[in-house]
């Protein structure tokens, strides 16, 4: 039972990792930029979610608004920064990205935005029931996270494999110049990529906010590096890899803590896994050569 409980917990943790890493790996795939400021989008998503929820009291509307505004925020980040650095050496956008992340976190801590406190996000499970079976035991909150994540992944899968937009992303991720030379409007395609990836990060922020019943300006610190580790583990730019790595990391984290206890701080396990991975399989689990 304890093992099953741990698996359920790990699954839910993995869901939040997946949403965060999916957007990051999509952006990496097309732009080859390590978009650290993605974690700011996550925080903004949680913030918008909690604001809308406190005004209207409807979780789904709050989630939708958070995703839309996060999406727009992501596109603005792209258009204001990376757009001008497309042909610069790769470290340049990376530095810009770290700079933006620090700037946004500081800005969000100002009193006219989030301030230096935690806000409660009492959406509970948005009215969903608890699930109790032999195989799975989920609280309403956990069920909510699982359903939202699965829904978004199905949508993402459909977009990637069944639409022209998805095909254009695949092409751009393999050869951006050549993608332009078959007629793909890169500006539009990349902006759409950022919109979707950022909306996913916004959703992750909302879900984590609800799960911990807490939203605060520095909540992106942890995901900023953990999502990065996940996409390295999975293989840069590989979406299935990111999903697999999210699951693995969540399981390892949960079981290490449950079986061995806090020998290491829980959030440092990711680094241990990263180091092992870089030593033995530097291309990641499902990475291309």
């Amino acid at each position: 039972m304890l093992i099953l409980q741990n698996l359920s917990d790990a699954l839910i943790l993995a869901c939040t990792y997946i949403l965060m890493a999916a957007g990051l790996t999509m952006v990496y795939g097309v732009l080859k930029v390590l978009h650290i400021a993605h974690a700011s989008v996550y925080t903004v998503g949680a913030f918008i979610g909690v604001l809308v929820f406190s005004w209207i009291g409807n979780f789904w509307l709050a989630l939708l608004c958070a995703m839309l505004i996060s999406g727009v925020f992501g596109v603005l980040i792209y258009r204001s920064t990376y757009f001008y650095l497309l042909n610069a050496p790769r470290t340049v956008p990376l530095i810009a990205s770290v700079g933006m992340f620090v700037m946004f976190t500081d800005l969000l801590q100002k009193n006219f935005l989030m301030g230096p406190y935690q806000r409660a996000f009492p959406a509970a499970g948005a009215g969903l029931p608890a699930i109790q079976t032999t195989w799975l035991s989920l609280t309403p909150k956990q069920l909510l996270i699982l359903l939202v994540t699965l829904g978004l992944l199905v949508l993402l899968y459909f977009l990637l494999t069944r639409t022209r937009l998805g095909l254009s992303w695949q092409a751009a991720s393999m050869d951006r110049e050549m993608a332009a030379a078959v007629g793909i409007n890169l500006n539009r395609s990349i902006a759409a990529n950022f919109f979707l990836g950022s909306a996913l990060a916004g959703a992750a922020g909302v879900l984590v906010g609800v799960y911990n019943n807490s939203v605060f300006a520095t909540m992106g610190d942890l995901p900023s590096y953990k999502a990065f580790i996940i996409i390295v583990l999975g293989g840069m730019g590989s979406l299935p890899g990111a999903i697999l790595a999210s699951l693995l990391l969540a399981i390892v984290e949960n079981f290490m803590v449950a079986s061995i206890g806090y020998v290491l701080p829980r959030d440092s396990i990711a680094f241990l896994v990263l180091i092992l991975m870089l030593m033995f399989r530097p291309n990641g689990l499902l990475g291309r050569e």
Binding site: M174, D175, M178, A179, A181, G183
Partner: peptide
């Protein structure tokens, strides 16, 4: 004009080395 605008107007390129979308099928 950017490359995609030139393609829209009727240009196409066979680049050096082919530059195929390597991981996609022939038909894609």
């Amino acid at each position: 004009l950017s490359a995609w605008e030139r393609v829209r107007r009727g240009m196409a390129i066979v680049p050096e080395g082919g530059r195929l979308f390597r991981d996609l099928s022939v038909e894609d």
